[in-house]
């Protein structure tokens, strides 16, 4: 039994990719959950907001690259990110002013906002297509690996190699910083607490002198920031393709619901639960098993499901969690 090599294979093929993917989902789910908590609806345009933010960031990245500006080993997109966030926040605030506010003032039922978000989804989808087209774009530059397979083998003398891509390390680090900042903001600052108060009890927030419109604007800005960061990290890690950003809506919603809609802590937990199950269930465990049980030669690849069916995993996780905990892992509905 070769536990070390098995562990390395596990880290390389399951843990690291799942951690990076989980961080991306968590950031996406945080945005969905915040909107759900504050504005009371599931934003179907969130995937396209991510795509739009990423598209803007890519355009700025290209401009920076053309101007010869780079971040050395880090992707230039990191420099472009603030502008991407600003552009996305501007668009999202504009949609709030032009679309959602009207219904908010009327105190319309949230299902109407859901419908409106479908309209906004079409709009943003079209805008992203106008901006950057529908083709796949790769925009990661800088160093490709923090640790590459050969160095790792030489360093450790192990047979199994381990690679840590810059984008994966970056994803996790950025996600940790962003999540820390968000929780600090929500739990320690007056504006953050005002957001939680509003999500708890709108009328009482008003009676405490909290300006609801400010809370809503702040929420949109944060959601736009989270969406853009999630989208750019996802794009750096894989590639930018607008349609994939639409498809990622399902695991993101699943993560938010699994964690308990409206609960930020839940969104993060949900993101990792979904990501780890997706990767673990669609990974062929043959190699790991080969190290653990030398001599055992199973017929198949020990892959529970083909990677094409990773969406099915989010779905099943979602159903199982809801069957046993109807409000999600963390009690939902409170930001």
């Amino acid at each position: 039994m070769d536990i070390l090599n098995a562990l390395v294979a596990f880290l390389n093929f399951v843990f690291i990719p799942a951690a990076a993917y989980g961080a991306q989902l968590a950031l996406g789910a945080l945005g969905v959950t915040l909107i759900y908590g504050i504005l009371r609806f599931s934003n179907f345009a969130h995937g396209d907001t991510m795509a739009f933010g990423t598209a803007v960031t890519i355009l700025v990245t290209w401009a920076l690259q053309a101007a010869g500006i780079s971040l050395g080993p880090l992707p230039t997109a990191l420099l472009a990110l603030p502008l991407g966030i600003a552009g996305t926040a501007a668009l999202v605030l504009l949609t709030d002013r032009a679309v959602y506010r009207f219904y908010r003032v009327q105190k319309a039922a949230p299902i109407i906002l859901v419908m409106a978000s479908v309209g906004v989804m079409f709009l943003m989808n079209g805008l992203t297509r106008l901006l950057i087209g529908v083709d796949e774009q790769r925009f990661a530059d800088g160093a490709r690996f923090v640790i590459n397979v050969r160095d790792f083998r030489e360093m450790t003398g192990l047979q199994e190699g381990l690679a840590l891509k810059t984008t994966q390390a970056l994803t996790v680090i950025v996600a940790v910083i962003v999540v820390w900042a968000l929780f600090w903001f929500l739990n320690r600052t007056k504006s953050g607490k005002a957001m939680r108060a509003y999500s708890d009890n709108e009328d009482l927030a008003l009676l405490s002198g909290i300006d609801p419109e400010k809370v809503v604007r702040l929420t949109w800005i944060i959601a736009a920031g989270l969406a853009t960061i999630a989208g750019v990290l996802y794009g750096l890690d894989k590639a930018f393709k607008p349609f994939n950003y639409f498809q990622i809506l399902l695991p993101i919603f699943a993560a938010a619901i699994v964690g308990g809609l409206g609960n930020p802590l839940g969104a993060i937990a949900g993101g990792f639960v979904v990501a780890f199950s997706e990767v673990a269930i669609t990974y062929p465990w043959l190699k790991v098993a080969g190290y653990l049980f030398p001599g055992w030669e199973p017929g198949g690849l020990l892959q529970l499901l083909g990677t094409e069916y990773k969406f099915a995993v989010s779905f099943v996780i979602l159903i199982v969690v809801l069957l046993f905990k109807p409000t999600g892992l963390f009690r939902g509905k409170s930001v």
């Binding site: 759900y36 908590g37 009371r40 609806f41 599931s42 506010r101 908010r104 003032v105 105190k107 039922a109 949230p110 299902i111 859901v114 999500s199 009890n201 709108e202 009328d203 927030a205 008003l206 300006d211 609801p212 419109e213 919603f253 619901i257 809609l261 409206g262 509905k333």
Partner: peptide, 21 residues
């Protein structure tokens, strides 16, 4: 009342009653 049962899209928390804008 359509769609208001579906907790995956609408938050069942009651809305405020006062127009904050």
């Amino acid at each position: 009342k359509r769609g208001n049962r579906d907790a995956s899209v609408v938050n069942p928390r009651p809305a405020g009653t006062v127009d904050g804008s």
